[in-house]
Write a protein that binds this DNA or RNA. Structure first.
Lengths: 73, 73
DNA sequence: AAAAAATGACAAGTATACTTGTCAAATGAA
DNA sequence: TTCATTTGACAAGTATACTTGTCATTTTTT
């Protein structure tokens, strides 16, 4: 049950690139990239900062997607 | 600006000791103890599990308390 | 097409989350 | 008080978050 996130979408809404997002939050560009590439569990401190920057709850950014194998059938 | 949390209170509401809480969430007793002792930033995965177990949002458990030095003056 | 900007990916190092184990101190029950 | 339960604290080890740096690939702009 991998941890997923919607950071890429929310970052796009803010019109920021990864480097700008990292700078705003206080982490490196690589860390933003790593998170967006998925299956990565940052600290709750970072999660709170990201959620605040995106003006949403932590749960709206980070969530669990079931490991189901159904496509849409 | 240390990270604070309300885990101890919420755990008490559930009527669980640290060992039971750890078992329910899937971490060791020490990890629960460390968090409750404060100034500790677990992974967002663990934060989500704790919030779910307590039936509240991540933000209701983990938050920042300003590092102000004013008492009440 | 060509140049510029943005992202993915890897490597190697540091910081810290999380582990098991142990003991003392605190709390609660008999 | 005595015994049992719970928690705090420390140590040492493993797992992983986060860092800087670099390069190839992709995307966007001209």
């Amino acid at each position: 049950m991998p941890l997923k996130n919607t950071l890429k979408v929310h970052r796009a809404k803010l019109g920021l690139n990864q480097a700008e997002m990292g700078k705003r939050i206080g982490v490196s560009r690589q860390t933003i990239s790593l998170i967006e590439r998925g299956d990565y569990s940052p600290s709750v401190t970072l999660a709170l900062k990201i959620a605040k920057a995106c003006d949403v709850s932590v749960e709206e950014i980070f969530y669990y997607k079931e490991d189901n194998d159904e496509g849409d059938a």
